[in-house]
Design a protein around this nucleic acid. Structure first.
Lengths: 124, 124
DNA sequence: TTTAATGCAAATACTTTGCAGGAAA
DNA sequence: TTTCCTGCAAAGTATTTGCATTAAA
């Protein structure tokens, strides 16, 4: 994968600054002078997610979305209504996840625990 | 929606005894003498989820899945590999969710926090 | 009769894949 | 040359919707 492609996609993701779908990234790129096909956007986002340069999760409607994140190990609060997200990091939460998982023989990997709720704006 | 349709779907879900997609429920029903169209299965599952008679969540691959659950308020541990699930209920977890959410102005609703990891069998 | 439920086929939407052309090594 | 990257179009899959038919009230 060309380096330039990666950074175009990364730039777009950064500019969007929220969990965005491949389609959204694609549209955003189209508005610039750059030109990248939709499949390439999909392929690039997948690779970026594999190499953990971007976070991946699913919106409640099932669409896959990506975001460039600040912290290395963290979880997300995701608004079920507007899609806003917040990152958090908590040792307490980590330990609790760990102990609950262990109790059931599960192994938590990465930051695969998201909390879905309603954000301040949508939550009234 | 006919009462009979609901119970056919519910029976099927119970028999499957794991988070199952509409398609899986549909196939399962087809193996019995009952006959229900795919759209009806989708519509019925959606209604059952709305009325909270069944739980709904998404597999990591984005497919929507349903299950008849025992406890009224609980969360799930979901295996990213084989799809096995376990229910858990923990006051500590509840309180922590609450306080983390509050800190960011989020409102957690229902049991919308799932932990994805690897189950005992898949986790080695 | 009036309303609600159902099945089927068609339409959507997201995502993946095959493949040929081009760039890079 | 050989391998990798890319775009386009086609295919795949999950889900929803329009509509005519049928069942229920």
């Amino acid at each position: 994968m060309a380096l330039q492609t990666s950074s175009t996609v990364l730039n777009s993701l950064s500019a969007l600054n929220k969990f965005s779908s491949a389609q959204e990234v694609y549209s955003h790129i189209q508005k610039t002078k750059k030109n990248i096909g939709l499949s390439t956007v999909y392929r690039t986002l997948q690779k970026l997610a594999e190499s953990e340069e971007v976070d991946f999760l699913r919106r409640p409607d099932g669409e896959g979305v990506y975001k460039v994140c600040a912290q290395s190990h963290h979880h997300h609060l995701l608004c079920a209504n507007c899609g806003a997200s917040a990152e958090f990091q908590s040792d307490k939460f980590e330990k609790l996840l760990e102990s609950i998982s262990k109790e059931y023989g599960y192994t938590v990997q990465g930051h695969e625990a998201e909390i879905v709720g309603l954000c301040k704006k949508c939550g009234r």
